[in-house]
């Protein structure tokens, strides 16, 4: 396991607890509104942030675990040499997509930070900062790209080893 693999696994082990946090926040919101008659406007924001961070930042780990679904109908029938070539191409394409998204979103996140962007849905009653949330997709895509690089590195290194073991 490379450093990047470990990083994504560690992060996932932390992120997964956000689901429990969402449960608590949502149930707290229902409870206070229905039983106490006090509607807490923060609930909807906090649960959305938790959910958004959970799925976005989990992208790198999901890639490591081959969790991003692909259609293997043709792929399955190909000889392993071509499979390997496709694996490399696909990782390169993922890295390309990721790089473009990072390139586009970095300035957006940075600007949001400079403005100290806040959410306006509730006017000035509750105007939580959301500039930090704009950094989440940026970091998420960086994690995906790093993970793709790590996987790519593994495939390329495996070249010689594979020849010996491949025909099992």
């Amino acid at each position: 396991m490379s450093f990047i693999d470990r990083l994504n696994v560690r992060l996932a082990r932390f992120l997964m607890y956000l689901t429990l946090a969402i449960v608590l926040v949502v149930v707290y919101g229902v409870f206070t509104r229905y039983f106490i008659g006090r509607a807490d406007a923060r609930v909807i924001f906090v649960s959305v942030w938790l959910y958004g961070s959970l799925f976005a930042l989990g992208g790198g780990f999901t890639l490591l675990e081959k969790g991003h679904v692909s259609v293997d109908i043709v792929y399955k029938k190909l000889p392993s040499r071509i499979k390997r070539a496709l694996d490399i191409i696909n990782l390169l394409l993922i890295i390309f997509c990721g790089a473009v998204i990072i390139y586009v979103s970095l300035p957006l996140a940075y600007e949001s930070f400079l403005k100290r962007e806040v959410d306006s849905s509730l006017g000035i009653v509750f105007a939580p900062p959301i500039w930090w949330f704009k950094w989440v997709p940026v970091i998420a895509v960086i994690l995906i790209v790093l993970q793709a690089l790590s996987l790519l590195n593994k495939i390329l290194k495996n070249k010689t080893i594979r020849k010996g073991r491949d025909e099992k």
């Binding site: 403005k115 962007e117 806040v118 959410d119 306006s120 509730l122 006017g123 000035i124 105007a127």
Partner: peptide, 10 residues
């Protein structure tokens, strides 16, 4: 939509 960002917008 920009109420909290700028009071004039509000």
């Amino acid at each position: 939509y920009k109420a909290a960002q700028d009071a004039v917008m509000a």
